[in-house]
Design a protein around this nucleic acid. Sequence first.
DNA 1: CGCTTCCATGAAAGCTGCTCATGGAAGCCG
DNA 2: CGGCTTCCATGAGCAGCTTTCATGGAAGCG
Lengths: 290, 290
Amino acid sequence: MAGTELTPQDLRLLLAVAETGSFTAAAEKLGLTQSAVSHAVGSAERRIGVVLFDRGRRGARPTAAGERAVVHARQILRQYEVLVTESRDAAAGTVTGTVRIAAFRSAAAYLLPPALENLAARFPGVVPKVLIVPELGRGTAGEVADGRADVGIATLAEDEEPLPGLSAVELLREQYFLVRPKGRTDVTSLPLIDWAENCSSYTRAWWTCQDWLPATRIDVADDGVVLSMVAKGIGFAVLPELTLTDPHPGVDVVPLDGEPPTRRLVLITTPATARSRAVRELVRNLREFR
Amino acid sequence: MAGTELTPQDLRLLLAVAETGSFTAAAEKLGLTQSAVSHAVGSAERRIGVVLFDRGRRGARPTAAGERAVVHARQILRQYEVLVTESRDAAAGTVTGTVRIAAFRSAAAYLLPPALENLAARFPGVVPKVLIVPELGRGTAGEVADGRADVGIATLAEDEEPLPGLSAVELLREQYFLVRPKGRTDVTSLPLIDWAENCSSYTRAWWTCQDWLPATRIDVADDGVVLSMVAKGIGFAVLPELTLTDPHPGVDVVPLDGEPPTRRLVLITTPATARSRAVRELVRNLREFR
DNA sequence: CGCTTCCATGAAAGCTGCTCATGGAAGCCG
DNA sequence: CGGCTTCCATGAGCAGCTTTCATGGAAGCG
């Protein structure tokens, strides 16, 4: 395509190829010919002087260079959208556009609904899209960094810094509580039911100050399952406040001794969209309704 | 241009028109015809459904919508560059690219040189471009927000928050000092020589705690001029540490009584580029050499 | 009023991105 | 081992978009 640079269409192509893993599938997805994709990708590679995909029998996989290109492609395409909606808004004096929110399950369940309701009431033109992501690996911050979301609700340990270049605003700071089967006051002999998202670094410091460690540790994927297992007397758990918002019969929630561990919930944003009215309003809402 | 969206060429055009203030000048700047610009801008406006420029006898001025479009256009074009250089770097295992740094004068004079020297030694492929901006209005942060710089060195009062969506990392925290003509111990009767960039909100709180106020106030544009005026005995000044780095004959620098005012120097970055190796290294250098 | 300096517009040229048609390579399998 | 399938590459040709060329109109300035 044009001269020496990549057009938005090129970017969409790269993205489609990366996401489908094949030129043919990408072409189909965009309503084009496989030939068109092949020509375009080849031309793009020639123009920037780098191979973006390894073609093999099983399709096409991005090279290291391709991975980088794809991340930027997503962000550029998003910013094109923002350009258009913000320009229209500026002319019409309205607030519209979509806001893609990445949140982990419990945040989406307890924090988002009131904020989104209020947002919808005041800015009917704004369409929020919620993306539920497990807070593992790079978690929600990764979604924002890779251009798949505009705003992320992430957890951060007290001393942790956000990924470079992402701006974090503290939403709230929450404590961990001891959750034990109802009536069971001594849990030292019970297994600890841990939960994959519950990044253990948050509680590790606290454990090192205790004079006992749990006998066994059971790992579970979902925090709801953790709670019902505790209710059945299978073990005890250490969970943050947010996952304990609903009343849970069959368990006692008690504060932890000493210096209880805490974690911060932060709002991750990217500059590209953070200045848009819709995102700013969402952030304001979330901070109000915490 | 193409279908329903703006190509990078369209963006370059918008930018050129906004910067030159005329279709004709923009065309010349890009080596095109005035006709091409007119057709392209018209077509872009039709596609996004908004008038971007007010055309008059004196040329073209961006509308509110146009202003927004231009800001995003700068950022999108920059991110295209970053896409290309990062992809090439990923393939070749190098670190290249330009980093545009916005700094106010004294930061550029005292903070930047050692950091840039070190950066150049370790990453010869990285080309820093320094943009000196008065820290007035939105200051260096505005340069970053509008896509004219990748990194900004800005000042922030203790309780101040950075612009929404920009991420700020604290570089250092510096005190204000009293600067008076050599030997002159009582300055209460002298005029205060103030300096436009010296955002008075930083020192206002301190003044309200004092039991005297300066007789007169003289406003000067440059901090160097402030110092030489003090040296001539014309008045006294209250200046932050950074502007006092060099020895200044003819003045005494003494700490302020009570709770002296401070300001923070922060590094402002945008996600688009902050993850690039070059920017991260620059940030590391600046924090080391503070 | 003529002159200059802006921008707009219609028609034609040139380039580019797409499709069509085809070929090649590599795995799978009876 | 040929046939089949499933990938991607390539060359030729067409359609459409971007740009130019050649004008025209509108408004400020002497």
